[in-house]
Design a protein around this nucleic acid. Structure first.
Lengths: 130, 130
DNA sequence: ACTCAGGTTTACGTTAACGTAAAGGTAACT
DNA sequence: AGTTACCTTTACGTTAACGTAAACCTGAGT
């Protein structure tokens, strides 16, 4: 009996448009229930949306996010045959290595920003002093 | 007298197409010298390309990368008037906060992957055992 | 009954970041 | 001279991820 959400609730919470949410649905990422013709989202739907947006922030395509989300939910039936599972583990490791690369990139960029900030504030100080 | 690179050198090194490199040039991100009609890239150009690709891995648009790269090279003349510099510092802080968000997202996603991996290998073990 | 603020479907439009193909230049090898 | 292997410019094509507009429904308030 957990809470439900209107399309506007979610749009406002995550600062996206309703169009975006409907688009994700046509892409098969969301399957809200209907109350009449209006969409009614569950807590589960909300989590899914959250995952999509997180993936987006990390530069994943929708297709990639779909894969990740699917793997995160093995479904109710353990339809987990071995090749499936092994492929899954491989995908996980690959994704993890991608994240490691991003981590590295972030560190470097932070460093660059430090440098840039230093230069900028020095230049500003010089102006102020002069 | 530092080393120079052909378009193919760079394409191979960074695993992109020559089309991509030329595209970045039309977008004003690169300005290689010419030897006849062939492009000849400096170490500086190579660094710029590296920055572009790093930005791309972090989900930046080309326009955003251009901004970052421009801010990273204040140019030869300190055309740095105050509003410019202040805006620069603001942009830096904003970018930094974006990176922090990404860091957070990465941690969460790593955690999710840990969970998924655990589940998957458990399921696999169950199969093997059965 | 009327309005009005939301929701809905359908469909065409848009932007970024290249892909791909056509047509040709050029240096080097055979 | 011919072929090969790059390079070049020019230009149209493509895909993802929505934006935007039109036309319609619908429950709540007056």
């Amino acid at each position: 009996m957990s809470r439900t959400y209107s399309i506007r609730d979610l749009a406002d919470e995550f600062d996206i448009t309703t169009r975006t949410i409907r688009f994700y649905e046509t892409e098969g990422m969301l399957n809200p229930q209907r109350e009449g013709q209006a969409r009614i989202y569950s807590a589960q739907d909300r989590v899914t949306l959250k995952l999509i947006l997180r993936g987006k922030r990390l530069g994943l395509s929708l297709a990639e996010s779909r894969e990740l989300i699917a793997m995160y939910r093995p479904g109710l039936e353990p339809e987990a045959n071995r090749p499936q599972l092994e492929k899954l583990l491989a995908v996980i490791e690959q994704r993890r290595s991608h994240l490691r690369q991003q981590l590295h990139d972030i560190e470097r960029m932070m460093q660059d920003l430090d440098d840039a900030e230093l230069k900028a504030s020095e230049a500003l100080a010089a102006l102020t002093g002069a």
